[in-house]
């Protein structure tokens, strides 16, 4: 059944709007957390304590790959949302699964980057700059990981319950979360990686 054709009581409709607004407010508070992590990073970007700098550590190719994968995953989630509106359960499952794969690629690339840096002696304990880098980028990665878990849970819900109104409402909030993380990533590559290699 398409979203439009679903009968939702006025009270439930109000509840879904309230949940969406509440979740939006949570995202605004999360935005402040990230903003302050960015501010901390900018304050500490020069505090390399004689250790490696961004120029020596960052790889533009890897950052580009991570960006591509994350951007695509936002798009595939969008396709899942379209399939949801059309009431097409199998398409929703397919696009959600592809989104998980793309998100997992992102995490894989990022873990690879972190491990590589740690092995070179450029872990967070090396300097203030690296502490700030790992915390900022790592917090984003943690959010993406939680998002991936959430998508998996929703795949389960869609599979077992079908495209009901509560499931749809949760999927749309997940979408807000996922797209928000993409915005944070845009700021990350603009503040950390691109200026870092200059």
């Amino acid at each position: 059944m398409t979203l439009e054709a679903m009968t939702v009581s006025p009270r439930d409709a109000e509840k879904y709007e309230e949940k969406e607004f509440g979740f939006w407010l949570y995202l605004m508070s999360d935005a402040v957390i990230f903003a302050l992590l960015f501010a901390t990073y900018l304050v500490m970007v020069g505090n390399t304590a004689g250790g490696p700098t961004g120029k020596e550590l960052f790889s533009l190719e890897r950052a580009a790959a991570e960006t591509l994968v994350l951007l695509l995953s936002s798009t595939t989630f969008g396709f899942a949302a379209v399939a949801l509106s059309a009431g097409d359960r199998s398409k929703v499952l397919m696009w959600l699964a592809i989104t998980v794969l793309l998100g997992a690629c992102f995490i894989f690339l990022e873990i690879g980057e972190f491990c590589g840096m740690i092995q070179e002696g450029a872990g967070p304990e090396r300097s203030g700059f690296l502490s700030a880098f790992f915390t900022l980028v790592g917090t984003h990665g943690l959010h993406v990981s939680v998002g991936l878990l959430w998508i998996c849970v929703m795949i389960g819900q869609v599979f077992f319950k079908g495209l009901t109104a509560p499931v749809a409402s949760r999927l749309m909030r997940l979408g807000l979360f996922w797209h928000f993380l993409d915005i944070i990533w845009v700021v990350i590559f603009s503040v950390v990686y691109l200026p870092g290699v200059l």
């Binding site: 505090n47 203030g128 790992f134």
Partner: peptide, 14 residues
């Protein structure tokens, strides 16, 4: 707990 250097005296803390 994890030996970061956000606020340490040395190693680039602030």
């Amino acid at each position: 707990n994890f030996d970061f250097h956000f606020f340490t005296n040395a190693m680039g803390g602030n």
